[in-house]
Amino acid sequence: MSRLESIDTTRLRWFVAVAEELHFARAARGLGISRQRLSGTVIELEEELGTKLFVPGAQPTQLSPDGQEVLSEARALIAAADAAEPRVESAATDRLRVGFVPGVTVTKWERIWADRFPDIALTLTPIPMKEQEQALREGAVDMCFVRLPIDREGMSAIPLYRELPVVVVPKDHPIALFEQVATKDLADERMQDASDLDDAAMTMELVAAVSGAAIVPHSIARLHHRKDLVYRTVTDVPETEIALAWPAAKTTELAEEFVGVVRGRSQRSSRSPSGQQPEKKKQPVAKKAVVKKAGVKKGGAKKPATPSRQGGAKNPGKRRGR
């Protein structure tokens, strides 16, 4: 019996991700979790197994001899678990695969979808920003929360919101005293290249190490928040824009339903497929029986209507003011 059989598969997958990447930040990004949570899970795993899985203090990250053995065992257990799962998953013929780039939080939409469509699986996959278009065009996901711009040819895209740019600096930096700054205020700073948002964790490391600065979207600074760094709004740098995109030729009913969820439409909205209920046929109205009264011929004089209490005729026998 393997010593890992009592450990849940999710924790094993997280360990394998770190062991294969040999980089905690990249592994956490690929798993869609925080670096702190991933590190904590590995520490708990080491305590449970009574051994070090990685060489302490090694830069770059290195597996220990015991870690190599655990990696081999973990891969075998994960493969066995995956082999047993497809039969269960194949029963769900309807599913929607949605990707999201770093900085996008999808928890709210995931919860609404689960409440509204409990029988339709929603798979959420973290996608590196540099692979966002490729993931859509090659069918790795059905839809994706992307950071604009993208090539719009053959794509449908709904802009959702804009993100303010912020500058990240060490906590004791003079800029930390201000609420917002302009680029001219950063003219003498050692600016780090932050164009690769997929490697933002390393950018933050550099800012902390050399007391530099970096400009990134607000969500990225928040995602990689550290106690030794602060971020302040930059007033004259263009905002970035987040959109939901998908191949136009694959605009399915599920895609339209997800658009409705993201845009905040109600479940009964007529703009969503599930809200477009067929009109009910009108039931024939029963005709009232006509009672003919004696002495009144068809087309004769009608009986005067009885006045109502509110707004009706006054009693002719009374005078006003008396």
Rank of each mutant, 00 (worst) to 15 (best):
K297L: 13
S266P: 01
Q276I: 10
G295Q: 04
K280F: 00
E257M: 03
R271D: 15
S272I: 09
K280L: 04
K288A: 03
V285G: 01
K287W: 03
A286E: 15
P304S: 09
K293D: 10
P304Q: 09
V296E: 04
G275P: 06
P278E: 10
K280P: 01
R265Y: 14
R268D: 09
E279F: 04
S266T: 14
V291P: 00
K287L: 05
V261H: 12
V291G: 00
S269K: 05
V259D: 04
S272P: 00
R268V: 00
A289K: 14
R268Q: 06
G260I: 03
A294L: 10
Q277L: 07
K293P: 00
G264N: 14
V262C: 09
A289L: 05
K297N: 09
G264S: 11
P278F: 05
K297W: 06
V296Q: 05
P304F: 06
V261N: 13
A286L: 10
K280Y: 00
A286S: 11
K288N: 02
K288Y: 00
S272N: 12
V285P: 01
K293L: 11
K292R: 08
P273F: 07
P273G: 05
V296D: 01
A294I: 12
G300S: 15
P278R: 10
G275E: 06
S269W: 05
G260S: 08
A289I: 03
G260F: 06
K280H: 05
K288S: 04
K288P: 00
S272T: 15
A301L: 12
K282H: 04
G260E: 03
V261Y: 14
R268H: 08
V259F: 12
A294S: 03
V262L: 06
K281D: 12
R265K: 09
S272D: 11
G300F: 06
S269V: 02
V290I: 13
S269H: 11
V262E: 14
K292Q: 05
A286Y: 01
K282T: 08
P284Y: 07
R265W: 15
A286I: 11
S266M: 08
K282S: 11
V259C: 08
S270Q: 02
K298F: 05
V285E: 11
R271C: 01
S274F: 02
Q283L: 12
G299H: 10
R265Q: 15
S269L: 04
G295T: 04
G299N: 13
K280Q: 11
Q277D: 01
K297R: 11
P273I: 02
G299M: 09
K281E: 13
K281M: 04
F258Q: 08
F258Y: 14
K288R: 08
Q277N: 07
K288I: 00
R263W: 13
K280R: 12
K287T: 06
E257Q: 13
